[in-house]
Design a protein around this nucleic acid. Structure first.
Lengths: 200, 200, 200, 200
DNA sequence: AATGAATGAGATTTCATTCAT
DNA sequence: CATGAATGAAATCTCATTCAT
């Protein structure tokens, strides 16, 4: 019974987090009220506080919980591959798939978390670092087998790559899906791999 | 005298905007109070409302005003050059210079505006589009003279380029200047131009 | 069996009251939560409400229950004596003994009840009157046999005596036992008695 | 103008404190809301927070401010006298006058502060100690000139005296003025003095 | 009878904005 | 024009109490 109760608790937590994703995406963290989240999740205001310390904690928990899913999703998909070029292509593909499949969540990640990590007390975004490390791993591997330039600074490059991908995703969201992410993904992958030059 | 008064008004406006930059950088837009800004700017709370419609308008005006400066700075610096490769290198160089020279402002641009642009009512960030257009111009020019690949989608690529540069800048700010932006700039320019591959 | 159940019930009630004494002493009635009391008593939150109407009722019941014990203790100890002077001395002695033996309870009585009696709806503290009557009895008896001044207003004097004793006890508690209550008791008894005596 | 503004501020503070006295006396500190106080004082809710850090601070400030008045009143009245017996009589007289003249304030002092001093963080009631010291001074002076018993422990006795007086006052308030405080005062003074005298 | 998750009313507190001076 | 005291709406969070299990 304890196990059952435990799973009940997890379910309720998840239910609130789903509500929070929707509301934060729609209104932004600061304009969303706890009441909004409660209503969206179908619980009473006070119930939120049985599962989360406060509003900030709700955002952090949302992030941790979802990032966990995302990271393991990436890892599973990339584990099948060995070629760094394939890995990079698939990384971008998976990234854009995730964005397309859960625009609300993407919204929250891109907008709220970016900002919040600076202002939520004592929160230092380890999950995001793990995430960047996946890219770093791909780049380092690519360098080792000689596919990628030996003079690449993996630290800078992982950021460059992430920034490029993420911005394309963000603008796609902001434009309400005016262009094909699929296609954009291929284009991005190609450019990152080959650069801008025609004589390559 | 009217002109004098006008310039007085502009001066006061600028003074408030400087205060706002400092305070928003330090506390974030939502955690900063109008009183904070007033104190930092050395004016009374109510005075803010003689120059700006409300707190949101202050942020938007800050953006418009500062973006104006930045855009004209970019245009001046790029006007001297004709080679798209040089232009791209210099664009990155100037971008990082601006970041280094006014970290507080960069902070506000990167963190607050990114988020706010979505939630400030009726605000659609035309200045940011102008900004992206500078990059687009460089890419299109590069394509036209055959330096850049003909199959580059200038729309996607401008976003990719901006994202890459901007993220490197952001992480530099967040890391409190742990690496050299100068160097990172060269590395970023090289990679964007040549891509990741060693066989280029 | 009914009797057994009845005693079970009494036991559970007592258990909750003990928890309440501890928690109210530690945090004060208004800062203590029903959950705190439940945890301290080792029962569920809801269980409290099977034994008490509400939080106020818990405080009142605590008082009634404990006051009952205290009153009968006083009566037993005083019944053995006939001399009013002895009675007064023993009264003070017993009072201070009770304080020393259950500081938590004393705390609740002195701090919470004093305040609460004014604000708990419909509660008029008859037990406290009974308590004062014990002192009044001693004084009246003392007057009758001519030990105490004939002009003593027993009504005022009982209050005076109670106030004097009680304040010494309170300050002792607040000072965390900096002085000897034993000694203080003798001193207080001496001073009060000399004040009351007719042969002065 | 600064001085004028300053006095305006003091006036507003006093106005809020007066409101608080009334409301706390009527409902008790914990049952009174800040809204209640604001309404009673004729200001907006938020205004309270321009003058006091929070609700606790309002109670503490009320105490400090009023205690100041009371202490200086006592000192003035006692300064005229030299005989310790007279001083003690007048002390009681003044105490009861104050009680009669501001029953609401007395209520708050007797009920709320008694309790609160234990629970308001970091508040240690120095003013109350000053107050007890006045009594101690009288007792010590009385001992020195041989009016009071040499074996009196001034520390215990000041508490005894204060407790006796204060309790008589409290019961008078609780009884809604059923007896004459004037008369009670004389009776109390008589009994206490006879208890304290060396020639008994 | 006992539980403890859920409720939601209500309290404190903040702060953008106004307006009399 | 400038001020800054005052406002009061609105948000977060707490906790006594209920009720399905």
């Amino acid at each position: 019974m304890a196990a059952l109760k435990e799973s009940q608790k997890q379910k309720r937590r998840a239910q609130i987090i789903e509500g929070a994703v929707k509301v934060f995406a729609r209104k932004g963290f600061y304009h969303a009220t706890v009441k909004d989240v409660a209503r969206e999740a179908g619980v009473a205001d006070g119930t939120i506080y049985l599962y989360f310390k406060n509003k900030d904690d709700l955002l952090i928990s949302l992030f941790e919980c979802k990032m966990e899913d995302i990271l393991s999703h990436f890892r599973t998909r990339l584990a099948e591959l060995s070629d760094p070029l394939d890995k990079l292509r698939v990384f971008i593909e998976v990234y854009f798939e995730l964005i397309e499949n859960d625009i609300e969540l993407s919204d929250v990640f891109q907008v709220e978390l970016r900002q919040s990590s600076k202002f939520l007390k004592d929160y230092h975004n380890e999950k995001f670092q793990e995430y960047l490390e996946i890219i770093e791993g791909i780049i380092t591997a690519g360098k080792e087998i000689g596919f990628f330039r030996a003079d690449l600074d993996a630290n800078i490059t992982k950021i460059l790559v992430f920034g490029a991908i993420d911005e394309v995703a963000r603008q796609w969201i902001l434009s309400n899906g005016k262009y094909s992410l699929q296609q954009a993904g291929q284009s991005v992958a190609y450019t990152l791999i080959h650069g801008l030059l025609s004589t390559s």
